[in-house]
Design a protein around this nucleic acid. Sequence first.
DNA 1: CTGTTCAAG
DNA 2: CTTTCTTGAACAG
Length: 611
Amino acid sequence: MFEAENPSLKSVPLAVQQKHIIVTCNYEARRRVTGSPHHLHCSSLNSLISSTQGLRKLQLITEARKTCPEVVIVLGEELTRFRDASKLLYSFLRAFSWNDRAERLGFDEVSLCQVLRHEGYVGLIAANIQVWMDISDMVDYNIDVINRSDLQNSFFHLSREDPTVGFAFNATQYAGHTFPQSVIGDSTANDDSSSSLRLRLMLGSQLALHLRHQLEEVYGYTSTVGVSTSKLLSKLVGNTNKPRGQTTLIPPYDLDNTNESSIRAFLDDYEIGKIPYIGHKLAHKMREHILGRPARCDNYDAGFSDSESKELVTVGQVRQVPEMSVEFLNKLLVGPGFAHDSGSRIFALLHGVDDSEVAKGRNVPRQISIEDSYLRLDSMDHVVKELKMLASRLIERMRIDLTEARAGDEGDRHSKDDPSAAVRRWIGRPESLRLTTRPRMPINADGTRTRTFKRVSRSSPIPSFVFSLSENADIADRLVMEALIPLFKRLHPERRGWDLSLMNVAVTNMIDTASESKGATGRDIESMFKRQNTVLDEFRVKEEESLISTDVVPGGKDKGSMLEEPANGYYEDDAVSDASAEDFVYWCHACDQRMPAFAKVAHERFHDMSR
DNA sequence: CTGTTCAAG
DNA sequence: CTTTCTTGAACAG
């Protein structure tokens, strides 16, 4: 992102700092090797790695400066710019999709990834975000309409409606790199399914190249892409030509154990922990079992053991253990937190099989959380102060990510992007509030402290005043007093003796109010309309209640109460918490009815239906 | 629905 | 001070 804003930075080693560590860095910084040769002789695994590989993620700043004194360090505590850049790129890519299968993975990274399905997927990678895209339908369509007698001069259609939208390309070759580098079994594998897959992948790679060009032309972001038939394969193959390159995994894809499969060859040399969905817990269990019993040097960090030590365990090794079977893995991979189907899932992954779907794009996130870590947090005063900070930032995030400028009044440019403007409507409503802490362990007998990263949390229904669009600080303070402190006391009833290394406050259990309105079927609309009068009464009652007790009220559990489904919530500023001012905020001029704002969309739909 | 664990970046 | 700040999915009870 910094590079995109200032291209000259690409040649200087750049790192982003959060607290006392490097949280991410650019390729230049990762490439840098230290000039002092004695580092290479150092016996410490740690400094050996850092001296041979340049900067890493999660490296201490002190160590980073040692390995690369000329590194430019920028502060990265403020994540809004990253989020903005991420959102921009994501929505740009998503707009190309026909089926809206565009899944975002992370946003603070320097690479992105996309997918095509065998009868299925393609992949792509860019800057700042990782995204998978299922472009099967686009590939299908273009294969249907392609002119097979003149493949060199093909045209890729980016729109089904407008045949002029698209780009010219050569459908007889892959764009970018391939893996393996040269085509295997060129003459042998000319059977129908293999050659049709070849063509599909070629189209996928050409689309990927087009998207990468666009990303660079329009936003100045370089990108890296992997093209294959699943999320697993496209992501892995995308890593092979790392900065600013794209790679397509080419057939034969034979998954049956016979034959040479480029998938098998590609997968078998991977360290087990580098396979997506195999994190340090699963990797550890498998290493343990194939290395005989002991798993040394583990320290639950895949980053260490995979590099050069003898602990390197590959996919091939695991796959070839004699007892290998789904049942075997199911027995091996049990424990709290492991999915019930871990065994079969991992078995499939080891064989290059991943049938998980690319998730549909979302307009609202599932949850929003804000957290901060502390060297020392052991007094109630301090906790309250920090909770206010967190709550305020959370409210800000909610307004950015869960509201949009209200349609209709386009004239007011100011309110368009101002998240605190009164003229906004909520497109998502969280129903729960959660407070998480990470208590520091008490001091051991020998003076050391056993490090733990265990978190504990408590949650409660969210008070409705957080949806008011009045002054942020007011709402934040109230949220702390009426909801967060009670949660805190549930977590830590003792008034003293604790010391927290982290606090996180989150809104969860998100209701997507925008697509919720679409969910209502036509037949239901009329009954909804008939029900309106009773609903309106409830609305008034509930609002009065909410004025009196807005704190953690377990009473609001009755299903069907209006507070639970203000689906299409239009909220005038303060309309919720100050219901007395204006009980009915929408006035339908067609039938001269007044109603609460959240009823507006459904009501309009009612009129649409009867036309 | 609540609280925890794993995974990813 | 070998861990920052998130998000999403899944499980048990």
